[in-house]
């Protein structure tokens, strides 16, 4: 009798656990299906290649796509070397002590700061103090600070997996420390560095709160080469920002769902791609 009561109780607990696990999967599938069902009809060639214009009667997000690419490019070009450099210092140069603890604590703190705070700081410092205003540059500089911990930490993890025998071997053969890092350590840690960079790109593409008051909401396409050179110093709304505006102040839900489809495809591709990459490198590493 006691035993069967126990069994019922265990059964209920087990059922609850299965239910919770099923919830995550259902939620993901639900979100994907819902967004696709609502948005796929808005996505066509015109939507992806033109700019919304009342005069021409077009609805398009080409300008936002260019802005997003530009912000990703500028941010990663600056953030990757800094993040990797920081990880190299922490793993290869620093001796355990106060400075390392402080840097690691700062990196940790930085990754816990919400994006809206980065947005405020970026607006005040890069936008107003340094005078970049609402521009792609302000947005990128803000995001550099935001993704730095992500890149540093992933690189650090990768550096830790490089066996010490590589270091000793290189030094023993008479290599200088920097030469060893450049030729042996960084190439060996490359898979981890790339994974971190791709994850950072995903974070940038999905970011919105940090960009609303830094990069602004401009949606025009740059005109010609000069336009492209000037673009970083002009306001530029990313896909997420345009989606937010379409769904709230503009009330254009078809556009919002269309952008949601594009965002979802990018984000899912980035994540599945990273997974495939990690697996590929893992297999190669074991050979």
């Amino acid at each position: 009798m006691v035993l069967s009561k126990r069994r019922i109780k265990d059964g209920i607990v087990r059922g609850l656990i299965y239910l919770c696990a099923a919830f995550s999967v259902t939620l993901l599938v639900g979100i994907i299906v819902y967004v696709l069902a609502k948005g796929i009809s808005s996505v066509n060639w015109e939507f992806l290649t033109t700019v919304s214009s009342a005069i021409k009667g077009t609805v398009g997000i080409a300008g936002n796509i260019v802005n997003t690419l530009m912000i990703v490019l500028i941010t990663m070009l600056i953030a990757t070397p800094i993040g990797v450099g920081s990880a190299i210092y922490l793993n290869e140069y620093a001796k355990p002590g106060k400075i390392v603890t402080l840097i690691e604590y700062a990196t940790e703190t930085l990754s816990g700061i919400p994006s809206i705070i980065f947005g405020l700081f970026g607006m005040m410092f890069f936008g107003e103090k340094l005078g970049f205003g609402y521009s792609i540059m302000t947005g990128s500089l803000t995001l550099i600070v935001m993704v730095l911990p992500l890149i540093t930490r992933n690189t650090q993890e990768a550096l830790k997996t490089v066996p010490d025998s590589y270091r000793n071997g290189a030094i023993g053969l008479g290599s200088g420390k920097w030469y060893m890092i450049r030729k042996i350590i960084i190439p060996s840690a490359m898979p981890g560095i790339i994974t971190g960079a791709i994850l950072a790109i995903g974070r940038i593409v999905g970011e919105s709160a940090a960009l609303l008051f830094t990069a602004g909401s401009g949606k025009l396409l740059p005109r010609g080469l000069m336009g492209l050179m000037d673009k970083p110093f002009q306001s530029g709304g990313t896909l997420t920002i345009q989606m937010y505006l379409s769904a709230t102040s503009e009330g254009e839900f078809d556009t919002a769902f269309g952008i949601a489809v594009v965002l979802l495809v990018i984000v899912l591709a980035i994540n599945l791609g990273t997974k495939a990459l990690t697996k590929h490198f893992d297999v190669r590493g074991k050979e």
């Binding site: 999967v25 993901l28 999905g206 994540n271 997974k275």
Partner: peptide
């Protein structure tokens, strides 16, 4: 499958959660 779903949920931009919240 479940672990992968959880990872992908983490990657979905917050504006999409907001949009679905608004509509559903």
């Amino acid at each position: 499958i479940v672990g992968g779903a959880v990872e992908l949920l983490a990657a979905i931009p917050s504006v999409i959660y907001g949009l679905i919240g608004m509509m559903v």
